[in-house]
């Protein structure tokens, strides 16, 4: 018999709208809280995974643009990075929501097609968009720093092999840049993951009481008047997920450094403050 079986059946997928429609309203058991807060983690993981995935590509493009000699590529990239690194994510969420609701409801006419806009105000899209832009600005800064520290010898060696242009970038510059940036990027990923807790505390409304871990934690803290249970449960989930995240990034790090002697020892995770 699994403990909390009934609660898991009712609430394990509540945050995505599957299961019991009404949240528990009285007699809040520990099972209730653990299950529902865990259910909320689905959103935190969704936001973190999607933002890191899309942000990674955008960040690479931004880093290259920032290192470009042409001011037409460099200046916009620098402005973007300054805007998103220079202001609090919390304010970015508020502003994004206020701005997104101003888009015409019926959609925008583009060359005969109607582009729907209403989905952008939903947290799954709007907040994700903010998170993608935010993390790509921070990551671009990290990647740019790494790009600037790619050893000159590596580039000269590539030249000697006759590599130029895209082939040189893809086979020499980019892998070295990733290798150099990876520890800091791990750090950024952790920061981003924790930032997902802010989504439902800022401008974005909860839809049908589907929220993230902290949304349910504060729901319980408000109903039970006891912050000493719900918040530590949420904290526990975050610690677990962070450890998994560090593990995954460690695997990637080993792959990036697989040609180096001693690399099998793996990533010695050193917390840094590079955000």
């Amino acid at each position: 018999m699994i403990p909390c079986a009934e609660d898991i059946g009712n609430y394990a997928l509540r945050s995505v709208g599957i299961g019991e429609r009404l949240l528990p309203r009285s007699d809040f058991t520990l099972c209730n809280q653990v299950t529902l807060i865990g259910s909320g983690m689905i959103w935190n993981l969704y936001f973190a995974a999607m933002a890191l995935f899309f942000g990674f590509f955008l960040a690479n493009a931004l880093a290259v643009a920032k290192a470009s000699r042409s001011p037409w590529a460099r200046k916009p990239a620098e402005g973007f990075v300054f805007l998103f690194r220079g202001s609090p994510l919390f304010i970015q969420f508020f502003l994004a929501y206020q701005a997104l609701v101003m888009l015409p409801r019926a959609g925008i006419e583009v060359m005969g097609f109607t582009v729907a806009t209403s989905w952008l105000t939903k947290a799954w899209a709007g907040a994700l968009l903010v998170l993608i832009l935010n993390t790509s600005a921070y990551s671009a800064q990290i990647f740019h720093g790494a790009l600037m520290s790619v050893p000159k010898g590596d580039l000269e060696a590539a030249d000697a092999y006759g590599l130029t242009g895209w082939a040189k970038f893809r086979r020499v510059t980019w892998p070295t840049m990733m290798r150099l940036a990876w520890p800091s990027y791990t750090n950024e990923a952790i920061f981003l993951f924790q930032a997902t807790a802010l989504v439902f505390f800022s401008g974005f409304p909860a839809f049908q009481q589907r929220g993230d871990a902290l949304y349910y934690a504060s729901y319980f803290a408000d109903k039970t008047f006891n912050p000493f249970v719900a918040y530590p449960i949420a904290a526990g989930y975050f610690i677990l997920a962070t450890l998994v995240l560090i593990g995954l990034f460690g695997v990637a790090n080993r792959r990036l450094n697989r040609h180096l002697p001693g690399a099998t020892r793996g990533l010695k995770y050193r917390p840094q403050l590079l955000r």
Binding site: L22, L23, P205, A206, F207, Q208, Q209
Partner: peptide, 16 residues
């Protein structure tokens, strides 16, 4: 609203 068939959209203040 949570008890009816409608979809509840929650905000922190009445103004919102």
């Amino acid at each position: 609203v949570a008890e009816t068939g409608a979809t509840l959209l929650e905000f922190a203040t009445g103004d919102e």
